Simulated scan of single mutants.
Amino acid sequence: MDKFLLQQQVLERLAEDLLQTERAARTAHETATHEENIAENKYDTLGLEAAYLATGQARRAEEIRQAMANWRQFRPGAYDAGKGIQLGALVCLAGADGNEQQLFLGPAGGSMKLVCGAEAVQVISSDAPLGRALLGKCEGDEVSLQGAPVRQRFEVLRVY
């Protein structure tokens, strides 16, 4: 599996998210400033609500821009068994039920599920609980997470 191809897919998805968020921000801003939405009394809050929404969407757009900058600068390297799993690692985990999953550990802001060839790959950051638990682990190590009802256990099968 090509890490650089995964990185490009993340950037493409973030670009799509940014376009949608910017459109939503423009629409909310237009609604907030439209002359028909000027408040006629204290209970007429459509314009105010749209302004809050526009502000939130603009903030989200800035977060996506920052994530895109982080992902553009990101250079996933080869796995070094001496250091264990680091940012940029592509990890194959097996759950207690035997099901395998592919994880790509990347910078913040890119959490998403991608398809590479015939395989699904979950992109996570090192800030995510599972991402933190994986850091420094090696092939054959066990990783456990305390979930709400039960503790989840995984085995690191392969790292690229």
Rank of each mutant, 00 (worst) to 15 (best):
A108L: 11
R158Y: 03
D17S: 15
I38L: 08
L11D: 06
T45D: 05
L87R: 13
E36G: 12
R65T: 07
L134Y: 05
K137Q: 14
P76I: 07
G110F: 09
L18D: 14
L46Y: 02
A24Y: 03
Q152V: 01
H34V: 00
N37L: 07
Y52L: 06
A81M: 11
Q8D: 14
R13Y: 01
L93E: 02
R132Y: 03
R72H: 13
N99F: 09
E100M: 10
E35D: 09
I64L: 14
Q57K: 15
A128G: 04
S125R: 06
L103W: 02
A96M: 14
A15S: 15
V121L: 00
A108I: 07
G147W: 05
V143Q: 01
G56N: 14
Y52M: 05
M1V: 12
W71I: 09
N37I: 08
R153K: 14
E16I: 12
M112D: 05
E36P: 07
A69M: 07
K113D: 14
T31W: 00
V143H: 00
P76S: 05
F74V: 06
N99Y: 06
A89M: 03
K3L: 01
E49N: 02
I64Q: 09
A15W: 09
N70H: 11
A54Q: 09
A28K: 04
E40D: 11
A15F: 10
V91F: 06
L53E: 11
Q101W: 12
V143F: 01
G147K: 10
L105G: 08
Q146G: 05
L48P: 00
G47D: 05
D80W: 02
A128K: 04
C138M: 11
E119S: 10
D17Q: 13
L135Q: 07
Y160R: 05
T27F: 08
